[in-house]
Design a protein around this nucleic acid. Structure first.
Lengths: 101, 101
DNA sequence: TCAGTTTTTTGCTATTTGGCTAACCATCAA
DNA sequence: TTGATGGTTAGCCAAATAGCAAAAAACTGA
């Protein structure tokens, strides 16, 4: 069972969940209220996000608050690093120009 | 058939292909030489990357050179933007500290 | 034209995924 | 203790995915 951050953010629902939780820690029920899917389905998505540690759970009583973990998301940013220079590099823009002749 | 950049980079083989092609445009055969998979399988991966426009094909004779398209990859960078402040923000580091008490 | 090369397309598998319902724990408040 | 609430797990299904082998295109060069 491959469970890395890249696979985690491949699903649009999971990206939306991350977009919610980054605003502030939430319980699964609170998250599910924003979607049409059942609580069970959302719970599964949250579980996948937790398994690859992009979310961290903190139990308080019977409620579980899920927090966003910046460190894991950073991995994507780091991977993106070597590609980023392609759109920041002005030489590349010249290269694109030449290729489009 | 969902075909976006996020789904495209979910597969480790496709990430590796992108890592190769960003160094310089390549033909499918040249790409396949770097992997254990068959040429057909690599061709399919390249096709998926092309469908979501993270690769662009340029035919020269009977050879097809695949080029990296920075613009599409940029979409990931843009999506990441709102999360990025979480690991750049010094207040968040304080927040992490408080949560770990 | 014809043989050879490069690349894609076409089935065909096995596995994974995302979604559901129903059942199951754990905890809170009467 | 008992019912309600918060959350996960189990079992099932349809669709998508990744991989392969084999066939078909498309082009090159003799």
């Amino acid at each position: 069972m491959r469970r890395d951050v890249f696979q985690a953010i491949a699903d649009p629902t999971r990206r939306a969940i991350l977009g919610l939780i980054v605003m502030g820690a939430m319980t699964p029920n609170a998250v599910a209220a924003h979607f049409d899917s059942t609580r069970q389905t959302i719970s599964k998505h949250i579980q996948i996000l937790t398994e690859c540690e992009v979310l961290i759970q903190k139990k308080t009583g019977r409620e579980i608050y899920y927090h966003f973990n910046p460190e894991k998301m950073k991995e994507i940013d780091i991977w993106l690093e070597r590609f980023r220079k392609m759109w920041e590099d002005s030489f590349n823009q010249l290269d694109n120009l030449l290729n489009n002749i």
